[in-house]
Write a protein that binds this DNA or RNA. Structure first.
Length: 534
RNA sequence: GUCCCCGUCGUUCAGUGGACAGGACAAUAGAUUGCGGAUCUAUAAACAGAGGUUCGAAUCCUCUCGGGGACACCA
């Protein structure tokens, strides 16, 4: 990784200067390497001179000049160092970039596989919508976000499992039963309730609810998930926790460790002492165990299965929920930090400029199926992924339909189709996948700015994965894909690939083949198709 | 009442301590007897407001205004 290399170079330079006595002794702060906003300023830059200037009684520019001369003494991947306003800007040598091409061509789909995950087991739990109705846009948002995050983490070297927690027991299932029967306790509304009423006879709300939820899970939710292009490794049933006595076991364990107490006839968990804002009930006064009790059992179950990292995507309406899970993790003898949450803000529906409240309980909502049917899976995915999960999302179906023709995803896919077209033409194959890659190539032939720019994007792919695996901000993926596609289109406009000059053609063809690999990798991570033709 | 999230070009989103605030759509002006014009090149356009911290703030802190959410022995 280029950033690490630069960090080492800078660190060594400072140490050398200290040895020579040109800099006084101080402990070196964390060196931050970033891309300058303005590309003309270099490939990478650092603000280190600002940070150390306090320690050495020199202004940042002086400090930067010292570093520059020290760094330029050493031979390295750096072609040029410039100081602008105290920032140290690095220009990476063209050769370094050219050398990435054979690496990419060799690694193919494995390009971008990192080891930062160290094979640690990660459990990503997402959607987990109650089996009481179809999946809505909000579920779709969390679904795509979780799925792509899981992809990225796997790419970064984690052992990732996707999990859907089915709340197939409890009050909401009873309410579903009442709704299907259609009595005065009914809560859920919508076409599907009427359909279920035709199928399920009987007046026992518990049994009706149970049957209805099973049908909803199998006939609505699972097909929707499949349609979304998501494959869960586990569909985890809440009910199974009761069947296997795991709820009892976790309550027993918490009690043994002294984290529970009785009050007002109920059994409480001392979550307040562990960072939550209040204590939580495990067993109600009437003897019924709460959802929280089974959540604790579920948490324990995940840990027992060997997951060190738990990531849970939650809707904004479940905000605050993680504090009690962290408290639970601690009480059970695990680290609080092993539980991570991503809050996915709700999706608001707008029609004719007015907000319409979406709710399964009112029967007003747009399902994720409807959206996919209207705009297609690729557009739907891109559409949700470009928005950070933490921001509010205003949705207008008509506008979404209209905009789908103009979605940037097509630009990205078009780049892929163009690439395939070039490859097919130059090899005379019908499919771009059969292209044989020549290895003895003179990459020196590549010297146009647009060519080198394109290779720079390949290097950034590695950074995108690393950063995203660290901060979970998946909106970086679609953004990057657009930049990569732009770099290609730009190259395409200014450089003819198939020409009389054989050496140049070969080099450019390999550049195109490398672009194909990186672009395919990017699209795969987003779960978006890479069409050879459009 | 307490807590959380959000407020960025006309629109919709990026940017969470760095250098002139990016992209997409819309707008305007250009580019094809060349590997797919679903493309490229260029122009115009925004940090809700006020203080503070810092060499440096869209980003951190405080207050104000506006929008949403959470505060169950429901899940």
């Amino acid at each position: 990784m280029i950033k690490e290399e630069l960090e080492t170079i800078i660190e060594n330079a400072i140490k050398n200067l200290q040895k020579k006595g040109e800099l006084s002794a101080f402990s070196i702060p964390k060196i931050l390497i970033e891309h300058p906003r303005e590309k003309l300023r270099g490939d990478y830059s650092t603000n280190i001179s600002f940070l150390i200037s306090k320690n050495i009684a020199k202004n940042p520019v002086e400090a930067a000049m010292l570093l520059k001369s020290e760094i330029e003494n050493e031979k390295s991947i750096i072609q040029k160092v410039e100081i602008i306003g105290g920032f140290v800007n690095f220009f990476i040598s063209d050769d370094y970039f050219r050398k990435q091409l054979p690496v990419i061509l060799k690694k193919k789909n494995n390009f971008g596989n990192l080891k930062i995950g160290k094979n640690e087991k990660v459990n990503v739990e997402f959607i987990s919508a109650n089996p009481t109705g179809p999946l809505t846009l909000g579920n779709g948002r969390g679904g795509f976000c979780g799925d792509v995050l899981a992809n990225v983490l796997a790419k970064a070297g984690y052992k990732v499992k996707r999990e859907y927690y089915i709340n197939d027991i409890g009050n909401q299932i009873n309410k579903l039963g009442h709704s299907v029967i259609g009595n005065e306790h009914a809560l859920y509304k919508g076409e599907y309730i009427i359909e279920l009423r035709k199928k399920i006879k009987g007046n026992n709300f518990e049994k009706v609810g149970e049957r209805a939820s099973k049908i909803i899970l199998d006939k609505m939710i699972k097909p929707s998930v499949k349609k979304m292009g998501i494959k869960f490794d586990f569909w985890f049933s809440e009910k199974s926790l009761y069947k296997n006595k795991e709820v009892d076991k976790v309550i027993e364990e918490l009690s043994k460790k002294g984290f529970t107490y009785k009050s007002e006839g109920a059994l409480w968990f001392k979550s307040r002492d562990l960072g939550d804002d209040k204590d939580r009930v495990l067993i109600r006064e009437d003897g019924i165990k709460t959802y929280f009790a089974s959540d604790m059992a579920y948490l324990r179950n995940k840990f027992k299965r060997g997951f060190n990292h738990l990531i849970i995507l939650l809707g904004a309406d479940h905000y605050g929920y993680v504090a009690r899970l962290k408290a639970g993790a601690y009480a059970l003898g695990y680290k609080k930090e092993s539980v991570n949450d991503i809050v996915v803000q709700l999706v608001k529906l707008f029609e004719k400029g007015k907000e319409v409240r979406m709710s399964k309980r009112t029967g007003i909502y747009i399902t994720i199926d409807e959206l996919i049917n209207e705009v297609g899976l690729d557009v739907a995915r891109f559409f949700f992924l470009t928005r950070g999960s933490n921001t509010h999302f205003n949705f207008n179906l008509d506008l979404a339909k209209e905009k789908s023709d103009k979605n940037p995803v097509f630009k990205v896919q078009y780049a892929y189709a163009r690439i395939c077209s070039i490859i097919k033409k130059s090899f005379g194959h019908k499919s771009a996948g059969k292209a044989k890659i020549k290895s003895k190539i003179n990459y020196e032939a590549l010297s146009e700015p647009s060519e080198l720019n394109l290779i720079r994007q390949f290097v950034i792919f590695l950074e995108v994965i690393e950063d995203t695996a660290r901060d979970y901000q998946v909106q970086r993926m679609p953004q990057y894909s657009t930049e990569l596609a732009d770099a290609f289109h730009s190259f395409y406009e200014s450089c003819q690939v198939i020409t009389e000059d054989k050496e140049l053609s070969q080099a450019r063809l390999n550049l195109v083949l490398a672009t194909k690999i990186v672009l395919k990798n990017t699209l795969n991570l987003m779960g978006i198709s890479a069409p050879e033709k459009m």
